[in-house]
Structure formats: C-alpha cells, structure tokens
C-alpha cells in the first residue's frame, strides 16, 4: 500500500507545485518509488516544473475515462527512474474528475508505488477536494502572510471533515506545516509573520521552512525541481523536509537571518 500525500494550501501561488515536485523527487531520490499527480485540471503546470511537458501524451482524465492505461499516461522522470508523473488534462473540464475515477487510479497506483504525491489546485473546489479526499498525510504549504495563513486554517477544517478518513471515522489525516517563502531578515524587522506567529495560529507539526530563494525561479525556468539544486538554500530545505518526513531528526534551519558582511560592519543584531 502506498502512502498518499496531498500538498495543499487553499491559496494560490504559495508554492504547492514547487513543493510537490521537490518532495516527490526527494522521496524518489531516497529510493522510494513515487508517483506525483497533477490535480489542477485545465491549468496543469507540474509537467513544466518537472521539465517533462513535451513528453505528455495521455493524462489523468484519459486514465479515468479508460482512454489510456495508467502505464501509457505515467511519465518516467528523466533525472530519477523511481519518479513518475501523471499530468493533468489541459483541455478537459474540471468535472471530468470524479471521486470514483480518482479512487480507482489511486488504488491501482498503490499496488506499485510507495508514495503518491497529490498536487492540489488552489481553491476549495472539486479538484482540491478530490486531491485531499484519499490522503493519508497533508503538507499544508503556507506563506508567512495573512491571507495564506487564513486559507491554510480553512484547509485544515476541510481536511478534518471532508476526507475519506473523516467520513469513515478513521484516524485523521496527519497534517504538517511547510512554511515557504520565509524571509528571516524581514521577520527580524517586524515586517513579516514569524514562524512562532504562524504556529501560534495553526499549531501543526513543522516539516520545514523553505527560505525565499532565487533558485526556485531558476529551477522552474530550467524544469528541474529545486531539490536537485543542492547548493541552494531552498534545495537543502526541501531535502531536510523529505528526510524529516521519513523520520530523520534534523534541527530546523533557515529560521534566523544570516550575518552579512554589511550588517557585521554596522554592528548588526544578534
């Protein structure tokens, strides 16, 4: 049986697809056979972030409708042969996703994969609801920003009431926080909500802090998940996230601002 992870947030643009690509790659790199599914029907982007957009032939909806087999639709990643991508349909209507269809595909994937990462679309409509419905674990991607935290809180409500686990009265979905686009310098200046501020409201298990990093854009430009950029802070932060998820005890990094040359010169703060 595969473990099903949903990467969700409610709000758009906080880093769900970046995170999905990074952690799916991270899990595969650690030797776990992983599938990552794009649930954003009509606005697929995961294929771009993973750099396989030109290899898409069949998609998730084709599989649901029986127009293609799972093996025909799954794209093997070019960097890691344990990672497979199931792209969303770009042309179909969102209504093409059905609970029964999604359930079937996940069941079939479960036989062969260790982890299934579901990249949720923004919002709280059908695609988002189905992405989380079958989940075992939820990575709640949040920016240290007021609307993102509010939407995350809303998602937590939905995770605890509208999932299969909730409906069956099973053990609830395990919820983790991923604080992305964190800028310790701005936190220090009192311009940005701190990790403690966010945790005071959401109080979730923290999987990691992903610092605001230019390498995220560079990675998406190149179609390489940022976790493969081992020199970048964001890449390292995602590697930590994967390791923590798999049970390693690692201290959290990227919480405090770096002591830059200028700041040291001017006396700096501690």
């Amino acid at each position: 049986m595969a473990r099903i992870i949903v990467v969700t947030s409610g709000k758009g643009g906080v880093g769900k697809t970046t995170t999905s690509a990074a952690i799916a790659m991270g899990l595969a790199k650690k030797g776990h056979k992983t599938a990552v599914i794009d649930f954003d029907v009509g606005l697929r982007n995961l294929d771009l972030i993973l750099g396989c957009e030109r290899r898409v032939v069949y998609d998730f909806i084709n599989v649901i409708n029986g127009e293609a087999s799972l093996n025909q639709a799954l794209i093997r990643d070019k960097n890691c042969n344990l990672l497979y991508i199931l792209p969303a349909s770009q042309t179909r209507d969102k209504d093409a996703l059905t609970q029964e269809g999604v359930g079937k595909v996940l069941d079939e994937l479960s036989k062969d994969f260790e982890y299934i990462v579901c990249d949720s679309p923004a919002g709280i409509e059908k695609g988002a609801n189905l992405a989380l419905y079958f989940a075992d674990d939820a990575f709640v991607v949040t920016n240290p920003e007021i609307s993102s935290v509010r939407d995350s809180d809303r998602m937590l409500g939905i995770l605890s009431s509208k999932s299969r686990r909730a409906e069956r009265n099973e053990e609830p979905i395990k919820e983790y926080l991923l604080l992305t686009r964190y800028d310790p310098d701005r936190v220090k200046l009192g311009e940005m909500l701190s990790l403690e501020d966010v945790q005071e409201i959401l109080s979730l298990d923290l999987l990691g802090i992903i610092p605001e990093s230019k390498s995220v854009l560079s990675a998406s430009n190149a179609g390489m998940p940022v976790i493969l950029d081992e020199k970048s802070e964001a890449g390292q932060a995602y590697a930590d996230v994967v390791a923590r998820y798999l049970g390693e005890k690692l201290p959290h990094r990227f919480i405090d601002s770096k002591q830059g040359f200028l700041r040291r010169l001017f006396g700096g703060r501690k």
Binding site: I146, V149, R150, V187, G190, E191, D197, I201
Partner: peptide, 17 residues
C-alpha cells in the same frame, strides 16, 4: 512594524471562523 498587526488580525479572524 506591521507583523504584530497581521498576527492580531489573524488571531481574531481565525477564532471567529
């Protein structure tokens, strides 16, 4: 400093919701 303001607004809002 605007972060404390954000936190306060959030706490009220989230408690209400």
């Amino acid at each position: 400093k605007t972060a404390p303001l954000a936190k306060e607004r959030l706490q009220i809002l989230v408690a209400h919701e």
